[in-house]
């Protein structure tokens, strides 16, 4: 464990807890894409298949349970909670799941480390996580209003993967392990997807104006 990875995990943890807390306290999911949340639940499910088979550390297991629990809770709130679901803007959140899931699945079947179920699922989760934010970014473009909790959520989500890239650089130079090129590429693509959001987020923060994404 190095400081970059710990900072990355904590940033990721805060991002999902901020979102869960927002939905739980104000009982609203305005501006949140259910599609992206469902994709994240799928990412964690396919990423953590080894949850009960390979014990790595208490930290690892606890964090996996938190990520699984929080992502499914968020999906449950938006889908089932009698108050929260009313604030879900399903007419705007229309990104088709299969436009993202199918290409990632095909890519994982074509490009992977080993052709085993767990390995292909793990690779699928890497590709899926890289693009799972797209429905949320599309929704933000459409609704154009970004309340600052949603802005913070997306910012923290992007920051966590950027910190992971620093972690992979650190591990590459300091550990006898190697970071596979698939992990590098999926992580870099994911961070680049946030890059334009980061630009507008910093602009609004610097000029102290409300965050507006160009149409």
């Amino acid at each position: 464990m190095n400081i970059f990875r710990l900072a990355g995990d904590m940033t990721h943890l805060v991002s999902v807890l901020v979102l869960l807390l927002k939905i739980h306290t104000i009982k609203s999911c305005a501006g949140i894409s259910l599609k992206t949340q469902e994709l994240y639940a799928l990412v964690f499910t396919t990423r953590y298949l080894d949850l009960f088979t390979d014990y790595i550390s208490l930290y690892n297991t606890v964090m996996k349970l938190i990520f699984l629990g929080s992502s499914f809770s968020i999906v449950w709130y938006i889908r089932r909670h009698k108050i929260v679901r009313r604030s879900y803007d399903k007419d705007q959140d229309t990104f088709r799941h299969y436009f993202i899931v199918l290409p990632c699945l095909v890519l994982a079947l074509l490009i992977h480390h080993k052709f085993t179920f767990k390995e292909v699922m793990w690779t699928f989760s890497l590709y899926l996580e890289a693009v799972a934010i797209l429905p949320q970014l599309v929704l933000l473009q459409r609704t154009r209003n970004i309340d600052n909790l949603t802005g913070q959520y997306v910012f923290l989500l992007g920051a966590y993967r950027a910190l992971y890239i620093l972690n992979w650089i650190y591990r590459h130079y300091t550990e006898p392990h190697y970071v596979h090129w698939i992990t590098w590429i999926a992580g870099i693509v994911q961070t680049l997807l946030y890059a334009d959001f980061f630009y507008y987020y910093f602009q609004s923060w610097k000029n102290n104006v409300k965050l507006q994404l160009p149409a």
Binding site: I56, S57, N60, K64, N167, R171, P176, H177, Y178, V179
Partner: peptide, 10 residues
Amino acid sequence: EKDEATKDEL
């Protein structure tokens, strides 16, 4: 031959 990392990552 290095063995692969990142499987201990989240």
